[in-house]
Computed example of a mutant assay.
Amino acid sequence: MSFIETHNVVGMTCDHCARAVRAEVGAIEGVTDVAVDVAAGVVRVTAEQPVPSTALRDAVEEAGYALA
Rank of each mutant, 00 (worst) to 15 (best):
M1P: 12
S2M: 13
F3L: 04
F3P: 01
F3R: 01
I4H: 08
I4V: 15
I4K: 15
I4A: 12
T6F: 12
T6V: 13
T6D: 15
H7Q: 14
N8Y: 11
N8K: 14
V9P: 08
V9F: 11
V10D: 11
V10K: 14
G11D: 12
T13F: 06
T13A: 14
T13S: 14
C14N: 12
C14W: 01
D15G: 13
H16S: 11
C17D: 12
C17I: 04
R19G: 14
R19S: 14
A20M: 08
A20T: 02
A20Y: 05
R22V: 00
R22H: 15
R22G: 08
A23D: 12
A23G: 10
E24P: 04
E24Q: 13
E24A: 09
V25Q: 10
V25C: 12
G26N: 11
A27V: 00
I28S: 07
E29W: 07
E29L: 09
E29P: 12
G30E: 01
G30L: 03
V31N: 04
T32D: 00
T32F: 06
T32Y: 00
D33Y: 06
D33G: 09
V34R: 00
V36M: 04
V36A: 05
V36W: 03
D37W: 08
V38E: 11
A40K: 14
A40Y: 06
G41W: 03
G41Q: 09
V43I: 09
R44N: 06
R44P: 02
V45S: 07
T46H: 07
A47I: 03
A47R: 03
E48L: 08
P50K: 01
V51Q: 01
V51H: 02
P52N: 11
P52C: 00
P52F: 01
S53H: 07
S53A: 15
S53G: 13
S53W: 00
T54P: 02
T54W: 04
T54Y: 10
L56R: 01
L56S: 00
R57M: 07
D58Q: 14
D58N: 13
D58W: 04
A59P: 03
A59Y: 05
A59D: 07
V60R: 00
V60D: 01
E61D: 08
A63W: 01
A63E: 02
A66N: 10
A66H: 14
L67T: 06
L67D: 02
L67M: 11
